[in-house]
Design a protein around this nucleic acid. Structure first.
Lengths: 112, 112
DNA sequence: ACAATCATTCACTGATGAGTTAACTATTTG
DNA sequence: CAAATAGTTAACTCATCAGTGAATGATTGT
């Protein structure tokens, strides 16, 4: 049983509320990257990036992996399941919304 | 020209990062509600709700409308465009991700 | 005009979060 | 072993934000 928790929609939203972390996600969409690469390409310090990555990890947005050939290097990749969790939340809202629209239509038709 | 700005994905994410505001969005998915109703059903104070609604307004997540019959009553409804903006952002990430997967597949096939 | 209702704004508090520099751990390389 | 590299942790500062109670604004009812 893996120790890292599954994506929780609340934490995912918090994670994606920060612009730097959204940039990280966008970069990781193009493939796995090292922590240092992310810090450099985004233009933030290493400590700041480390903290951001920890938030993304705990939220289940990214996963980490140490390189077998050089264990200093920590590689991060996207976990699309987290995005799917956000989508599911949006779907839930939109489903209720559509249902409401249906009721409204029926109401209008009954009045005509 | 309406004074409220269109949905900005950055502000939408910030708005949805708060659990109370997500509850508001969920309730509004079931139809328009007054500020007081939202405060009561969620169990928060009126001032707090007012602030949350202002954030949601500025982010373009909700729209407000004063009732013609009783101008004290301010009714809030969902603006689905904001959710669509979030979806578009997710789509953009996932598109890059899928493209990356394609490249990976081709790489594996070439190696076999 | 006066009271009641619905909601917002103000002033304040406590908590959280992002950034920085410096120190530290772990790993690889000469 | 010593130096260099990759990254995290620690201690601190600053800003932001959510909540609260009190006061205020705006509108309706008597």
């Amino acid at each position: 049983m893996p120790r890292r928790s599954g994506p929780d929609v609340a934490e995912v939203f918090v994670a994606l509320a920060d612009p730097t972390r959204r940039q990280v996600v966008q970069l990781l969409g193009g493939g796995a990257r090292r922590a240092g690469e992310l810090a450099e390409q985004i233009g933030t310090s290493a400590p700041a990036m480390s903290r951001h990555l920890r938030v993304l990890l705990r939220a289940g947005v990214v996963a980490d992996e140490r390189r077998p050939d050089d264990a200093r290097l920590r590689v991060f990749r996207l976990r699309p399941e987290s995005m799917i969790a956000v989508r599911a939340w949006l779907d839930q809202i939109q489903a209720e919304w559509d249902e409401q629209l249906q009721h409204f239509k029926q109401h209008v038709e009954r009045r005509s």
